[in-house]
Computed example of a mutant assay.
Amino acid sequence: MAAITTKAIVFSAIKYGDTSLIVKCFTLEEGVKTYMIKGVLKAKKGKLKAAYFQPLTQLLLTANHNNKGTLNSIREAQVSYLYETIHTSVIKQTIVLFIAEILSSIIQEEEKNESLFNYIETSLIWLDTHNSIANFHLLFLLNLSRYLGFYPDTSNQHGTAFNLLEGNFTLSTHEKSTVIGENFLLFKRLLGTNFDAIHTISFNKTERQIVLKIIIQYFELHLEGFKKPKSLDVLETVFS
């Protein structure tokens, strides 16, 4: 079994027994992989530390990938980008847990997806190095839809509503799953924005919740089996 060295982003870590973790990572080279890391919770020494496997930690792994649907193992790991503010900010920490939960539920493929990996990686570094981050999760999810193949079609600029099912602007405002009126205008403000312009969008608490609910509904309609994240309530509490 040949070892592979790859960048990886931790999606989740579940305790297994008293001392071990089952860790799900999104790797640059081979997509989603799940690892059994034995004894890591009691190890004082050793190459692997439990702290490496916090949600969305960026790692450089040397791992054995057996590709038989069984758990893989990690030989070595080191943090490839050390967050400076994410672990000290309650708001950033909450955003990270929320995003990790969503990514873990929707990204399942065991195949390389370099552009998606790079998007997640650079977005997290942006989050770590900026302060105006109240709308980060909204833009992160909306732009994530581009890599999942259902980013809104904004070509019909005259549309006065947004059809969540079709993913486009429309003039018919009475159909089911259509965002209209004030909510449509709020949602539209986010479209076409990048992270560096995010501070120009000022949503209040209520507006932010409205836009997030629209995006979650959009994901539910376009991703089979997508469930509303459990961490949504925590996120709303932190921003209230």
Rank of each mutant, 00 (worst) to 15 (best):
I210W: 02
K205T: 15
A8K: 01
G31C: 09
S123N: 06
F136M: 11
D128G: 15
S115K: 10
N67H: 08
N194P: 03
T6K: 04
R189A: 14
L56E: 10
T27I: 07
K44A: 15
Y119M: 08
E111H: 08
N64P: 02
Y35G: 06
L82G: 12
A43S: 15
L21I: 01
A13E: 02
G31M: 00
A2W: 00
Q157W: 04
K68T: 15
L48I: 07
F140E: 06
T85R: 09
L221H: 12
E29N: 14
Q58E: 15
E114I: 14
E110N: 08
S240P: 05
I216Q: 06
E114Y: 09
N113G: 10
C25G: 08
K45D: 13
G46K: 05
L127T: 08
V23R: 02
T88V: 14
S105K: 00
L61I: 15
L185Q: 15
L186M: 09
E30P: 05
D153Y: 05
S231H: 07
E175D: 14
L171S: 15
I214W: 01
A2S: 12
D196S: 13
I216C: 10
A2I: 07
T34E: 03
R189D: 13
E110P: 06
G159M: 04
F98Y: 15
C25R: 02
S132E: 12
V234E: 06
H87G: 12
T170C: 15
G17L: 01
E175K: 11
S104W: 03
L71R: 04
V79W: 00
P229Y: 03
A2N: 10
I198K: 06
H65W: 01
S115G: 05
I95M: 06
V40I: 12
T193M: 15
E29C: 09
E224I: 08
E110T: 07
Y119K: 08
F26Q: 03
L82I: 14
L103N: 09
I133E: 03
L144Q: 05
V96K: 02
A161M: 02
T170R: 05
G17N: 10
T6I: 10
S202C: 11
E101W: 05
F140N: 07
N131A: 11
S89K: 05
V23Y: 01
N118G: 13
G46C: 12
E121M: 07
A100T: 10
N156M: 09
S172Y: 04
P55T: 11
E29D: 13
M36E: 03
Q217P: 10
V79L: 09
Q209C: 12
L41K: 01
Y81W: 13
L212E: 10
N67P: 05
T170Q: 05
T70E: 14
A13Y: 02
T178G: 08
L41M: 07
K112V: 11
T206H: 09
L148F: 02
D18W: 03
F117R: 02
I120E: 07
E175I: 09
T34Q: 01
A50D: 08
